[in-house]
Design a binder for these strands. Sequence first.
DNA 1: CGGAATCCATTCGGATACTG
DNA 2: CAGTATCCGAATGGATTCCG
Lengths: 137, 137
Amino acid sequence: METADGAEVTAGAAAIGPCAAIPAEHMDFIRQTLDRVGDKWSLLIIAVLESGPLRYTDLQRQVPGISQRMLSLTLRQLQQDGLITRTAYAEVPPRVEYTLAPLGRGLHEIVTLLIGWAADHHDEIRANRERAATAGS
Amino acid sequence: METADGAEVTAGAAAIGPCAAIPAEHMDFIRQTLDRVGDKWSLLIIAVLESGPLRYTDLQRQVPGISQRMLSLTLRQLQQDGLITRTAYAEVPPRVEYTLAPLGRGLHEIVTLLIGWAADHHDEIRANRERAATAGS
DNA sequence: CGGAATCCATTCGGATACTG
DNA sequence: CAGTATCCGAATGGATTCCG
């Protein structure tokens, strides 16, 4: 428990380690991309689109809790970023299909890992959180 | 361009593919965990903490643009979830160090992948986005 | 069916000021 | 140094309504 080190352990910015090496110049666009991709719905939509093209209403059904508004917004964002493709068939009744674009497919693998991790440690996190809340009282 | 398929391509919920298999019952806590872990700052903090323990002000310096408010809030969240550990040394001037907990270290690998992906495809995404904006005008 | 538009509550999050 | 507290604008996001 004692602070054996007399030296300033700070170092920090200068001595970045092996792989993380976030050049701080990149921090900004990393944040941007993360923001685009890391919001509530984008990851879930990308995850759901893995099984193949889906229509608007299918997406709405498979991502429970999403509103039309957020679905539309998120889909447009993802499409503009080139992560998914939108195909509209000019027929009645209208049909629109969303598919994972190549760029999105690359991201999908990471998303799968992240979701897997979330599913794996979900209860552990919940336990920790509740313990912290209990300890606080 | 024509719709050669007469069959309902939907399938969707029933015929989930190989690995994504999001059981829709889990959707909810996945969203929770993703929300906790996927916000602007959590990922960056976890990424930065890889190189070793960091003090409050060091974190503030290494994550440019973060306010004390968000830094405090995010740190407390991460700590309560058991992703990082907080060690306060009762001395003057006070010193507090934040370290990646085992749970956080597991997540860190995925975060690294995600950040790597973001760095990799950042300009591609930007190009797509600008093209879409141009086409819209 | 596949959205877009408006309205409104909640939340996020930065700036500032203050405390131990 | 390491935070907390308050204020307040900006963005998020749901509910509802309307359109092609």
